[in-house]
């Protein structure tokens, strides 16, 4: 319904950017606050989850991935997928060495 405009260069209001910034700063505060609580092994998971949410906001809003062509999103997905593969293979390998 909203995508009546065929122009890919959407008009961005200042307001949305300020809202995204507020969310990012709040999440930063949350990470710093949560770091004081000891979740044990879960601490790193919580910290990384917050970092992923923040990156998602920067990618979609500030870097305009939301309004960019689909090809861009496929590129990112492939790039991140390969990093994930590297990480998985690396840790499969290391779990054999350390035990």
């Amino acid at each position: 319904m909203e995508k009546i405009k065929s122009n890919s260069d959407h008009e961005h209001g200042y307001g949305l950017y300020v809202l995204v910034w507020l969310a990012l700063v709040t999440l930063t505060g949350l990470t710093a606050a949560v770091a004081g609580i000891n979740f044990g092994k879960l601490s790193i998971v919580v910290a990384l989850l917050i970092a992923i949410v923040k990156s998602y906001l920067v990618l979609t809003e500030f870097m305009h991935l939301k309004t960019e062509e689909r090809t861009f999103r496929i590129f990112i997905f492939v790039a991140l997928f390969f990093i994930l593969i590297s990480l998985t293979l690396l840790f499969t390998d290391y779990s054999f060495y350390t035990r």
């Binding site: 930063t28 990470t31 770091a35 000891n38 990156s55």
Partner: peptide
Amino acid sequence: WIFLFPLFYLIT
């Protein structure tokens, strides 16, 4: 930096 910050500053 969003990733560097928790990984270096906030290790519990």
